[in-house]
Every structure is written in structure tokens, then in C-alpha cells.
Write a protein that binds this DNA or RNA. Structure first.
Lengths: 239, 239
DNA sequence: CCAATAAATGAATGACGTTCATTTAGTTCC
DNA sequence: GGAACTAAATGAACGTCATTCATTTATTGG
């Protein structure tokens, strides 16, 4: 046996020349210990996104950061969208739903929505993926929905309206997440300013208020309206 | 002169063999009459999107539908994103702002928001582009904002809150546009249903209502809350 | 009339996601 | 404990796409 194996080996072109610090290229074939798994891929993807942004998240770069050939990734994910889904589900777990069950309904919704927006405003490229993606493939996302749903139910929300209310809030959150990423001068009409006097005046009037983050003002305004409006749908509960 | 030109021509390999119906391939060099302009590109892009969807909108396909080489497009647009911006601005002109100035504020907002959502729910791939894009490059979009802003002002809306309110409404509209495109079974928890009992129950309860379009129910719920909430910000006007 | 510019072609490039044949190692079954 | 099967890696290749560039031809402005 040993003889056979040795005989089949190529004539030894220096079997690890020295204990160098180089990445030590792996030879083809299944490695003794698995190099990849979904957790590792998720972590590496998040790291890459954090350092290079979503433009830097390519399958090649991801593989590189994991010390692996790009094709190896496809043993663990079906596509790049699968990677995005892994990232999304990881982020969903970071959304703060802790106030549901401990705080009054409106406080809990407020905390959840702000947290949800803040998390995804750094990850807007995920939104087109999330918005269309069945929750069955995203357990942590599902857990978030469960916590929110339970919070609404316990607050006396009529059951047939809970999902609609969550969907509406989520739509607002996703749209607002985009707004966070918009450039400051997005509403500068430039040379066309004279043709849109009311708009220009309103933009200037808001600028005069010198809010640190106009996007936060808009989010607050909309969120409070939604909370007030939805709060009125609740039935009496002893709390 | 004429002699010189004639002498430089190749020896006539049949100068349009017959008035065939073939596309008649254009020879290199500037054509006598311009083939492309931004309007034509916009129209062709919309046609392509309508027939093949956004996956079918490639620079090559666009060029093909215009009977032109792909590189020719770059004499008229700087990038594919520029094409998307042209499309976006075209769509903005289709959003119904006609009720501002003729109908009560709440009716006008309702008409505008529904129309805005309906238009862009067929064009969600534009949303990431729009959300970040300075309005200065989109005159028809700017015109829409002007109409809405004027409507808010005339309705007694405090000027410093107008832009924030529009931004919030727009965020909701964009998020809701995505929701329209979601598959029906997006909330089916599948094998994880047992682990999320409240959520599953709420999903089932909504399904029991048998609404034609659940996404419309959610949009209506959120929009009415926003209209009510924002309506309270208005100062008294004689109308 | 001549120089500059505009608008087309066509060839080439460089990312990028993905597939496939191949190699090697672990797992299961008799 | 060996054979068959499966899992996990490499590396080469592919196809699609947006974009660039040299070149050609026509129009325009001084």
C-alpha cells in the first residue's frame, strides 16, 4: 500500500520547500478538513462588503478572501443570490425586536423600525433580493417576523390586519433605507431651479432648519404617522 | 474633385443589389441623417423592457433594436445608467399629479401615490437608480415634484415640512412598488411554520379574507395612515 | 475651404457569474 | 476492509455584458 502510493507520486519537486508564511496553495482534490461552510462564507461576505462595499463583493473576491477557488463556493451555495440571502438573514438577526413583549406597542414599533432601517441602509443592494424572497429560506428573518407579529397581537391588533400593517411598515422602512444613501444635494434642481419655484423654495426652507440629517426627519415624520394611524386600529387590551 | 472621390471608391461590389427588405447594413462613418437621439433610445428601451423585461435590456439588445452598433449608443448616453435615467424620467411624466390644484389635498395625494406606485411597480429595477439620483438630470421628475410641492403648499402645509412629507411618502411608494412584485407565497414559512405560530396564524387569517390583492390592502392601510397623519399638520386654509 | 466636431462601425477588452472535468478524501454498505 | 458513492476542492473554460478605442465618414463653424 504505502509502496503503491509512493510509486504513484510525482518525483518530489520539493515537498513544501520551507515553512514559509505563504498561503501554501492547496492541491486539487477534497481537503482533509473542510475549508468552507455557509457560516464562513457569510462572515467573509460581510467582511468584504464592509471593506469594499457591494461592488467589491464578487464571487472571485469572496473565494480569494476564503483562500479558495471561485468554483469551490458552488459546493455550498447555488448562486451569488444565495450568498446575498445568507447575508440578509444574518442582518435580520441584528434588527432589534427586543421591545416587543417588554415595552408598550408604540415604543416597540419605533425601536424596531428605526433599527430595521439603520441596519439595511448600509445594505440597500439586498433590498431587491429580500423584497421578492420567500421567507422560508431565511430562518432568522422569519424569527423577526414572529416577534413582531406576536407583539402586534398582544397589543390588541386585529389579527387579519397584522400582516398588512407589517408589510406597510416594511415598505416604508425599505424605501427610507434608500433615502439614507442619497447624496445631500439630491434635491438641487441646478439650472432648472427657476422652473420649479415652489419645490426650490420648499427645499431651501428645509435646509434653513439645519437638521443634522434631513433623512431622519422624514423618516420620523412618516413613522410617527404610521404608528398613530395603526395604533387606532388596536382593540382595547388590559396591557 | 468628383473624379478623385470616384477613383477612391472600391470597384462597386453591387451598390444595393436590389430593393430587398433586409436591414441594409450601414457602412462605417457618420450617416447622412442621424440615426440615434435620446428620445429614440428611450422609446426603444421602454419597448424592450415591455417585451423582454429588465433582463432583456442590454446595451447590445438596445443597439440591435435601433439597428445600430452597441458602441454608437455611447455617442448619446454616457452609460447604461444614463439609459435607465432616461426611462425613469419618461415614467415620471406618467405619474398622475393632475388632482393637485383641482381636488382636495387628501384626494390628490391618494391619486398621486397610487399612480406613482402603479407606474414603478412595473419598473422596480429603476428604484435603486432613482433613489440616489440628483433630480437636476431629470426634468420631468422635477416637474412632478413641483406639482406635488405646490399642492402641499396650497393645502396649508407648513413649508419646512413639505419636502420631508414628500420624501416619506415616496419612500413608502417605492417600498410598496417592490411589494407588488413579490410572489404570492412569499410568506409561506414552509417547514419552519411550527416555529413561528403567531406569524403563520396571522398569514392564514389574512388569506382567509380572500382579498384580490393583499399588496393593495397593505398599501391602502399605510397610505391612509400617512394621509391622516400628515393632514393633521396642515394649517387652516379657506380652500 | 479647412479644421474641428459629431456620429457611425467594428474589433477588442476586462469583469463577472457559472459550469465542468478532474482529483482527492470521507462515508456507507456488504 | 474493500468497493461504490458522495462531498469538496482545483483549474480551465465559457458566455454575457458594459465599455473603450481606432477608424471612417459627414456635417458644421470660422
Amino acid at each position: 500500500m504505502l509502496g503503491t502510493q509512493a510509486a504513484e507520486r510525482p518525483p518530489m519537486p520539493a515537498p513544501t520547500p520551507a515553512p514559509s508564511t505563504l498561503p501554501a496553495r492547496r492541491r486539487a482534490g477534497r481537503p482533509t478538513a473542510a475549508v468552507l461552510d455557509q457560516d464562513g462564507i457569510t462572515t467573509a461576505a460581510l467582511e468584504l462588503i464592509s471593506n469594499k462595499g457591494y461592488n467589491g463583493l464578487t464571487m472571485a473576491a469572496l473565494a480569494r478572501s476564503l483562500g479558495v477557488a471561485p468554483s469551490a463556493l458552488y459546493n455550498h451555495v447555488g448562486s451569488k443570490d444565495d450568498v446575498l440571502l445568507l447575508v440578509e438573514d444574518h442582518l435580520a438577526a441584528m434588527v432589534d425586536v427586543s421591545a416587543f413583549g417588554s415595552e408598550p406597542w408604540d415604543v416597540a414599533v419605533r425601536r424596531w423600525a428605526w433599527s430595521y432601517r439603520d441596519v439595511f441602509s448600509e445594505h440597500t443592494p439586498l433590498i431587491p433580493v429580500i423584497a421578492v424572497l420567500p421567507v422560508a429560506n431565511a430562518p432568522k428573518t422569519l424569527a423577526m417576523y414572529e416577534a413582531v407579529t406576536a407583539g402586534f397581537r398582544d397589543a390588541g391588533f386585529p389579527e387579519e390586519k397584522i400582516i398588512s400593517a407589517i408589510v406597510a411598515l416594511e415598505a416604508f422602512v425599505f424605501g427610507a433605507a434608500y433615502d439614507v444613501t442619497a447624496p445631500e444635494d439630491i434635491f438641487d434642481a441646478g439650472s432648472l431651479a427657476e422652473q420649479v419655484p415652489n419645490f426650490t423654495a420648499a427645499v431651501d426652507r428645509l435646509a434653513a432648519e439645519e437638521h443634522a440629517r434631513p433623512t431622519d426627519v422624514a423618516f420620523n415624520l412618516g413613522l410617527e404617522a404610521l404608528i398613530t394611524g395603526f395604533g387606532a386600529l388596536r382593540e382595547a387590551v388590559s396591557d
